[in-house]
Each structure stands twice: as C-alpha cells, then as structure tokens.
Design a protein around this nucleic acid. Sequence first.
DNA 1: CTGTTAGCGCTTTCAA
DNA 2: TTGAAAGCGCTAACAG
Lengths: 338, 338
Amino acid sequence: MNAVNLKQLALELNLSVSTVSRALRDSWEISTPTKQRVFDLAKKMNFQPNPYASSLRKHRSRTIAVVLPEVANNFFALAIKGIETVAREKGYHVLIYLTNEEAAEEMAIASSLQSGRVDGVILSLCGSTKETRHLLELQQRNIPLVFFDRVCEELTAPKVMTNDYESGFIATEHLIKAGCRRVAHLTISMSLSISHRRQEGYVDALRRWELPCDPSLVVHCPREEEESYRMIRELFSSSFRPDGVFASVEKLAVQVYHVCRELGLRIPEDVKVISFSNLVTASLLEPSLTTIAQPAYDMGKEAATMLFRRLEKKYIVVPDDQVMLPARLEVRNSTRAV
Amino acid sequence: MNAVNLKQLALELNLSVSTVSRALRDSWEISTPTKQRVFDLAKKMNFQPNPYASSLRKHRSRTIAVVLPEVANNFFALAIKGIETVAREKGYHVLIYLTNEEAAEEMAIASSLQSGRVDGVILSLCGSTKETRHLLELQQRNIPLVFFDRVCEELTAPKVMTNDYESGFIATEHLIKAGCRRVAHLTISMSLSISHRRQEGYVDALRRWELPCDPSLVVHCPREEEESYRMIRELFSSSFRPDGVFASVEKLAVQVYHVCRELGLRIPEDVKVISFSNLVTASLLEPSLTTIAQPAYDMGKEAATMLFRRLEKKYIVVPDDQVMLPARLEVRNSTRAV
DNA sequence: CTGTTAGCGCTTTCAA
DNA sequence: TTGAAAGCGCTAACAG
C-alpha cells in the first residue's frame, strides 16, 4: 500500500488537483459542499500530504534544528522537551543534532543546515568552538538562529540564558531568610564568567542584608575530589564555621553532606545547604538540601518562542533580543518518611 | 543571499543541469576533468543540494523519526544519543517527537508520519497506549518500525529491550559474590512482566548459588513513601535481617540507605546494596550503592542499527528480530574521599 | 467557484 | 561523455 496523493483524490472526485488542494487548505474560494466531499474522501483514504513537495514549492519546511553539545544531561533533555512542546503547538517538526562537544561536528552540522532543510536553528555552542563563520553563514542564508544557554557573544542573534547573577542572589538570599548568618560559597571553575556572576549575586545578597562578606567563606574547590573534600572539611572545622552553604555544583553539596556527617553537624539544623543542580540527586539524597536549577524547560520554550516569532515575521523591531531567566529554587517538601 | 542550486552551477560552468548533478554524485559517466571543475565550483559556492527536491524525486528522505514518551529522563536521553550517533554515521537525520505518555499524541504523531516524511520509525510505547492501529498503518505504508524498550507484543516488528531476567540475575549474583547470604529483593509494581522477570532472575541466581529463597526477603513496596519506608525498616529490624539488597528502583535504594542510618547499620559493611537506576543519584549519594542500569546508549544504537538494516535492505531473512540487552553493572570506584 | 498551467530543485530515462 | 526532457507532489498565478 502506497501513499495517496492529490491526483488520486482529484480523479476519484472528478475535480482538478488544484481544487482539491485548495479545499484541503480550507480556502474561501471553494464551495462548502465541495470542501465536504474532499474532506470526507481525504479522511477515508487517510490522505497525508507529502511535506517535501510542499516544502519544495513553498521554500519553507516547517522544520527546525536543535543543535546541542550533548543530551545525556537533564538540562538539555528538558530543553528539548520545552522546544518540542512549542514546536508541536506551532505545527513544526524538530530535527536533533548532537555535536558531542566537538567544534568540527558543530561546523559540519551548521554547514549542512544551509541546504534549506530547516527554517531555523536553536543552538548551544560546544565548548571547543572558536570560530563562528559557520554560524554567520547560516544567518546570511536567512536562517534565523537562536542561541541557547551557551551563547556566542560575538554574533548578533537572540539569546536565551540563565541569569547567573540573579541565581546567586536568590540562592544566597534563600539561606539568609532561613536564618543563616555565615553563608559560605563553594565553587569550581566553570566558565569563569558564570562563576563570577554567581559570586557577584552571592556578594550582593550579603550586602543587601547587611551581612559581612568574609572572604574565607568563599572556597574555590579544585577538580580533585580528595583535595576538594579536605578544603571543605577545613572550612567546617573552624570555630567560625558557616551555618549555610551555597554550592555552585551538586558534587560539592554532596561533599558538604559527607563532611557534615563526619563532623557530626546536622543538616539542616546546624548547616543549611542550597545547591545548583540539574539532576535530581541532591534532593533525593537529603530533602533538606534545597536545590536551585536552571529552568531548562522554560528556557527551551523561550528559545523556541523567540525563533518562531522570527519565522512567522510577527515582529518589526525585536525588543527582546536577549532573555535571561533566573534559576528556580526547588525547595523539596518531600517527607523523608522517618 | 539565497541558496545556490544546480541550475546556477550549470550556467556558470556551461554544462547542463544533469551533468552537474551526475558529477556531484560522482557518477562514472562523467569525465574526471569535468567532475573536478564541478566539485571545485560547488565547494567555492558552498553548494548544498536541496534535500527536499531530492526526497521528492527519490521517495526517500534519509530521515527517521524517534518517538518517545518523554526525554527528561536519563534513559531516553542516552537512547537519543545512541540513535543520533549511528544515524549520523549513516547520513540520516533524526526527527524527535515526544508523546508525553499520551496515547492520543502517539496516535497523532504516528498518523502524521504516514506522509512520507520519514523512512523509518523508532518508537517507545507510551504507557496509556491500548490500540495499535496507528502503528500497523505505518507498517502497511512500508515504513519500517522498530520498538524500543517499551515494546508492543502484538505487532511483528524488531524490538530492542532490556533483558530483565538476566539483569535480575546479574544484580543478585553480584551481591552473592560479594559475600551476601541473605539477599532481599525490593520491588514496586512496574509493568508486571518486568517485575516478574527481574524477580525470576533474582530467584534463579539464589538457586544457582544454592542459597535458600526466603519469601520474606521479597518485599513489594507500595507507592506511598511512608508505608514503603515502614516495610523496609521492618525488614531490617528482624534478627534475620538481610545482608544484601537488590532494589528494583532507585527510590527504594535511597530508602534502604536511610533505614540503615536509622538502625545504625553500615553500608556496605553490614548491608550491601545494588539498585536499578538510570540516574546518577544513588552512586553520588553513596559510592558503595552499586548501580545496575539499562544500557540506554547501546540500546539506542542497536535500535538504529536494526532500523537501518531494514532501510538499506541489506538483509533477506531477519535473524535478529528481537534483541535483549542485559543491564549493565556500574560499580563505582569513586572514592568517597574520607 | 473551478480548472489550466507553470514551476519548486533534483534525478533519471532516453537520445545524441 | 553530455544534454534534453519528463516528472516527483504540491502550490499559486492566471484565466475562465
């Protein structure tokens, strides 16, 4: 059994192909009874218009590409979900490409996307990308590009990212409001600008609440687990130990957890912990480890929305070229069932 | 700047469109010098053939669809990665569709896939799906369908899934080899057949090692956290408490962890734990909680491979219509850094 | 309201 | 070894 097409429908109905086409697109130039006949037969024969014929003719594919460095990662997985949700709403299809953090793959993909296969692209840069010519070429072909999370500063394009400053602020403020007076900040060197912005948020939150900003409370942890653990233990061994911790990655929060166990400190009674995290780990581990996560799903939706706004030319000027969503607190109210 | 096409190349080179087309496809009927000229100009002008024109003409899109119930889940995320990897190797593109566990969405998607948009489909059934007509119709349109993980027993189609029996066996055997003599099995009612098969594996591993199979060691935990926690605590309060636990979901492993803390049992000295898990949670929590996970990435690759084998008609009979991959043990050697 | 016609960009006979 | 021409299935002028 092969696909049914307009011609067959037309033949069957004694109509011309164009009439059938118009009827199916519910054109006002077609009489209601004719439309009805067409609709009925189309449904009966389960007619599905060939999207490629239509794309070829109309120079638009109703398809977008999502290019991500990886997907085995809750953040990007949720992003896909967000993107797919609004894409489907709009009747678009989503092609997915993974660069595996390889600049070369990113270039190859971007280059192949110049074929007209997609109407627009949502992309998160891979870490190793240095050049941006391949992205510029996309734009020159009038294929709208929206950056997602890992944006490219040099290019003029809509960008959706996390507001790291605000996230740091929110996280710190959460601890302060919970009664902490000596809030530590644990960080590893991620992208430096990200770390810095989170730290600025942390510092400003302390200022805002008129708390002293003790430099010894900011610990830059090394990648090596043992060394990192040692530094955290030292931090908590001091008589001026923190009563709150803002960890910029989950791994550090888990280390804090183990340090506290070792030192006999109770969480959250003695030490309150909040951690950046895109996994479910921390909160499963210990419900009182509050989590602050990038709003991946919303960011995906936002990116898609920005892209479609461009695709559908529903704008003249573009006021919101850059969207920064704050991370979201996830205070688990899950009972530990004790 | 708009896309460059065959016509433009032909004009520029004083050749016919068909010659250029053939040259680019490296046809043997074209002289080497001509080919060279064509290649050079194509590269210079960054020619990207319009895939839709080609699809329309050749009735194949070099595109597959991946239909999943969700993706905010490490298992499916990894699966996508596996699928995308082999798809790219083969020069195929991957469309992604999420059903959000809604049978209605699954039907709508499957139905739209009859349009010829894709050459094949990899699908994981959503929980609520009862009917399978939409899938049958796909097959009738000669669109190969491969089931992934959540397979459909009624339909004849290649299936890739986890070998739950073997997984249960492996997990249990792991504990026995580690010295456990009273291995408990904690389970929630997932799909019953899955639970059953894992349990059979568990039972057979005990038999194989000539250990008694005490029914009181198999606990079916309810969904309610408190109740589940209570049952687990009771299990461990007995004087005949288990010295090993095979948890069929991560949540139960975490509960075991908390029960042990409450009762002063040490992990892994007093109780060894192994848990089914597609998250990173358990092992981050407590390195000694060995994890056994579905080999999502490999399953994805396998499913894609099976699909492409059909698409490329490289088979006459299909010997491997059903592949069952065993789950994979992940014994973390991460130091807890104490 | 409906039909005729001319493509979209590519592949593929068939002819030279 | 190359070119001319037809056509994949659909859309959109344009004409009735």
